[in-house]
Amino acid sequence: MMATMSWAHPHVFADVTVQAVFDETGFIGVQNHWEYDEIYGTSMFAAADANGDGLLSKKELESLKEATLDPLAKQNYYNYVLSGTKFLPALNVENFQATKKNGKLVLDYLIRFFVPVSNEYKFLVIVVADPSNYIQITSDMGNSDAKAPDALEVEYYDDSLDGLTMMKSFRSEVEGLYVRFKK
């Protein structure tokens, strides 16, 4: 999957921030905040808004989730969480929310992962990117962060992916959120 080069060209544009989410048991997922470009977002919103009232009912929200996220399931929802030398598989999607902000479609949801906490530091690198470049994702890791209970010690920073051979398929300006955590 990661060996894919950027053969495609962007048709969809999205500005993304994330939050690494922890509970007492460890790392439990990545909270995604996606703001799509107006042209694509309007098309997807209109497709989901079956009765055309400009609001999304529970059923319409589910339909939007199917249209926007289900096709990304095979690509791990473009959430790449590197733990050691392995990418963690996404377990499921939770708390899917959709709103419109200045005409733009904004999606918020949690992609579930799991890494148990221990007394030693565990390290993660979180990247949100589309290696095929069909969606040009601008992930703002400088404004991304982490959320954890007091029982855990979590540290993070944002930086480029230079030097990470597992991340060579990504565009050079893609940044990662580097996280470590322990009890």
Binding site: Y121, F123, V125, D145, A146, K147, A148, P149, D150, A151, L152, E153, V154, E155, Y156, Y157, Y178, R180
Partner: peptide, 14 residues
């Protein structure tokens, strides 16, 4: 004092 989440630079080798 009990801040659980900190934005800080660290080395990835531990």
């Amino acid at each position: 004092s009990f801040s659980a989440v900190t934005k800080k630079k660290f080395s990835m080798d531990g």
